[in-house]
Design a binder for these strands. Structure first.
Length: 82
DNA sequence: GTTGAGCGC
């Protein structure tokens, strides 16, 4: 299950994002989108969880909750163009 | 040494 996480703190990293979602289940991959030039966070990221059940629990459990001092938005990610 | 809706190289 791919998860879209928005309104992250601009200083939040991918490891922090993964560690945060791992509280609900196994996280296979987590990544915060950074700018290619400034290398600063774009304020959103993606989390991939192998268990769809844990992923759903994480979405409903972490959506609109405080993370790293910011209220984040968690929802299912759109299918990326292969 | 900033900002805050939106979907990743």
């Amino acid at each position: 299950m791919n998860i879209f996480v928005a309104k992250l703190n601009f200083r939040t990293t991918s490891e922090q994002l993964q560690a945060h979602f791992e509280t609900y289940g196994e996280v296979s991959s987590a990544k915060v989108i950074f700018d290619k030039v400034t290398q600063r966070s774009k304020g959103f990221g993606f989390v991939e969880m192998p268990d769809d059940n844990a992923a759903q629990e994480a979405i409903e459990g972490l959506n609109e909750t405080e993370f790293d001092g910011r209220t984040i938005v968690v929802k299912k990610a759109n299918p990326r163009n292969d």
